[in-house]
Each structure stands twice: as structure tokens, then as C-alpha cells.
């Protein structure tokens, strides 16, 4: 569902599509701590690219995901935020908003991972607002490019996770326990 707006799609290089192997990466999520995508094999991963830390609105995308996190976790999924902000900014942002998931810094070289996923806005020096759900084998199951000012919400992610769970016959009660 939720097809990308064609106008927005033309503004960046193209978003990698479902069925594509998710490009590997290792990025810091805090000063001196890094995470590799392949460490998360075996469970669905949600990658949420967003333009910047410190958006001023309450109930913004990152804040919403912090609230919805238990719903993602019902599917055994791991949520990761990604922006070009540095690890120190992320650390402060996580502490200030009491975020319960990790934010990765696509900071050096700037936007390198976003480019691999086709969601870097070179003119602005930030990432698009884009979502990927990656299956337990590291293959993109769903991707969505949101208009940059629009909070894409969580329903697309939950629909994708639900579909994955059905396809893979996940025993949700087993995952939850």
C-alpha cells in the first residue's frame, strides 16, 4: 500500500525496491559504539531514515515510533532510526526524548548509507524521510518514500510486518515470550 509520490521520487536517486538485498552497513549509534545490519539477521528490521534530530513538534515521527515501539516488538522487529546527525547529537536527542530505540549516524562519510538505499538529498545534505522493512534474511520486504514534511506514521510498517509474519509463519507468541 501507500505508493510513493512520483513527484518526490524523481527528486532523489531511486529508492531500493522490495526483493532487493538490503545494502550492508556499520554505523555508530553512540560515541564509540557501532552496529552492523547483519548482526540483526533472524528478525525483521525497520530502517527509518529521517531528515534531522530535534524536530520541534510534539508527536513527530520519531516520537510516534517511540510510543508505537511495543507494537513493532510484537512482531519481534528491531527499529533503527538513521539520519546524518553525529553520534553526540543522537545521544543527546535519545536522552532528551527518552527514546527506547537506537539512532544511527550516517555522518562520516556523510550520507553514504542513505545513498546506498537511494534516499540521500544531496542538494540539502540530509536524508529523505523513507522507511524500509527488511526481512529476517536481510532482504527488503517493503519500502516507502514519504514527502519530506509529512509524518508517514506507523501503519505502513505494521502492515508490512504483518505480511512478513504471515508469509514466514512466525509464531508470534513464541517471539513475544
Amino acid at each position: 500500500m501507500a505508493p510513493s509520490n512520483p513527484k518526490d521520487a524523481t527528486e532523489s536517486s531511486s529508492l531500493i525496491a522490495p526483493g532487493t538485498k538490503a545494502p550492508e552497513f556499520t554505523l555508530p549509534f553512540a560515541p564509540n559504539q557501532a552496529l552492523s545490519l547483519n548482526e540483526l539477521r533472524g528478525k525483521p528490521v525497520i530502517l527509518a531514515f529521517y531528515p534531522a534530530d530535534w524536530s520541534p513538534t510534539c508527536g513527530d515521527q520519531i516520537g510516534l515510533y517511540n510510543e508505537v515501539l511495543p507494537e513493532f516488538q510484537k512482531f519481534g522487529a528491531e527499529l533503527l532510526g538513521i539520519s546524518v546527525d553525529g553520534p553526540w547529537s543522537h545521544k543527546a536527542f535519545v536522552e532528551d526524548r527518552k527514546l527506547r530505540f537506537r539512532l544511527l549516524s550516517d555522518f562520516e562519510p556523510k550520507g553514504a548509507v542513505a545513498r546506498k538505499y537511494g534516499v540521500y538529498r544531496a542538494a540539502d545534505g540530509i536524508t529523505e524521510r523513507a522507511l524500509f522493512v527488511i526481512d529476517k534474511d536481510g532482504v527488503v520486504a517493503w519500502s516507502y518514500l514519504s514527502p519530506i514534511r509529512v509524518n508517514p506514521g506507523a501503519e505502513g510498517i505494521l502492515d508490512a510486518l504483518e505480511k512478513l509474519a504471515q508469509q514466514e509463519g512466525y509464531d508470534q507468541t513464541k517471539i513475544a515470550s
Binding site: C58, G59, L64, E67, G153, E155, L158
Partner: peptide, 13 residues
């Protein structure tokens, strides 16, 4: 209420 809202595209209040 909250879960139903999330599934209906409630992104904030």
C-alpha cells in the same frame, strides 16, 4: 484505542 489509531494512520495528536 491507541492501537486502532496507529492502524488508521494517527501520527500525532
Amino acid at each position: 484505542d491507541f492501537s486502532g489509531g496507529v492502524r488508521s494512520g494517527v501520527n500525532g495528536t
